[in-house]
């Protein structure tokens, strides 16, 4: 059997909000080390990769590896009922046909039980090569979300350029052009809620990406105050948000190239 209890149920809620618009159905692959999920969007342009380590749960039991296939939209509707301080327990039988989600309020005064039908999803896992990225930008997640939203007014593609001085996001369209530059900056009083902008630069990068997908990724903003954007010329970028201190959610996006 599989059973896992997550004291911070709102993490699961935020995860579902972050992926439900990008991926319809996905397998939660459960093993003794934790839960992982890997899924591409239907057009094979982006990929989401989630990791929740077993040690982040206050109870975790997985007798044998199982894949629990779920419709993420249906799951997100159920998980939206999780109260912010609720604990969530996920359970499944050994074949993953039926999945139970149980939400418990902090004082134990309310318990709700939900059952979802498991789906048989045929998905291949892609081998993601480990890459030493040329530029790694860490910045406030809310700022990244805002930049994606603001530049979408002008165009559908953003050129992200990193230099020693900072990072720029530029877009152009029929209406005109827009460019937002961020300089490296220190965090304000080491306040985790006001992170600065930092760039680890092996080599400058300039690469084009579809704003539509980046905007989907920013649905993960409530998960964490910071986001890390890793890039090398000519390969997919990675946008990573930590999931508490138990793992991460990574979004990969294939670049746009000159015709």
């Amino acid at each position: 059997m599989f059973e896992a209890r997550l004291p911070q149920g709102d993490l699961l809620k935020k995860i579902l909000e972050a992926v439900k618009d990008l991926v319809t159905d996905a397998n939660f692959d459960c093993s003794s080390t934790g839960i992982s999920l890997q899924a591409m969007d239907s057009s094979h342009v982006s990929l989401v990769s989630l990791l929740m380590r077993a040690d982040g749960f206050d109870h975790f039991r997985c007798d044998r590896n199982i894949s629990i296939g779920l419709n993420l939209l249906a799951m997100s509707k159920v998980v939206r009922c999780v109260g912010n301080n609720d604990a969530v327990t996920m359970k499944a039988d050994d074949n993953g046909d039926l999945v139970t989600l149980m939400f418990e309020s902090q004082d134990g005064s309310k318990v709700s039980d939900w059952q979802l039908r498991g789906l048989d999803i045929d998905s291949e896992r892609l081998g993601i090569p480990s890459t030493d990225y040329s530029s790694v930008v860490t910045m406030p997640s809310a700022e990244f979300a805002r930049i994606c939203r603001d530049l979408s007014v002008i165009g559908d593609t953003v050129v992200i350029t990193t230099t020693k001085e900072g990072v720029t996001f530029a877009s152009k369209g029929e209406l005109g052009t827009g460019k937002i530059a961020l300089r490296q900056s220190a965090a304000i009083d080491d306040d985790a809620d006001s992170p600065g902008v930092s760039i680890e630069l092996q080599e400058p990068v300039s690469q084009s990406f579809a704003l539509r997908y980046l905007s989907f990724f920013t649905k993960a903003t409530p998960l964490a105050p910071t986001v890390t954007i890793s890039m090398s010329n000519g390969v997919p970028l990675v946008v990573e948000y930590p999931v508490g201190d138990m793992g991460h959610i990574r979004f990969y996006l294939a670049p746009k190239v000159e015709d």
């Binding site: 591409m40 057009s43 094979h44 342009v45 982006s46 990929l47 291949e124 896992r125 892609l126 081998g127 993601i128 090569p129 559908d156 593609t157 084009s208 579809a210 390969v235 997919p236 990969y252 294939a254 670049p255 746009k256 190239v257 000159e258 015709d259």
Partner: peptide
């Protein structure tokens, strides 16, 4: 504007 590439061409099947 450029053309969109796909992940299949970067990430191999294991």
């Amino acid at each position: 504007k450029g053309s969109q590439t796909h992940l299949d061409s970067f990430f191999g099947r294991p």
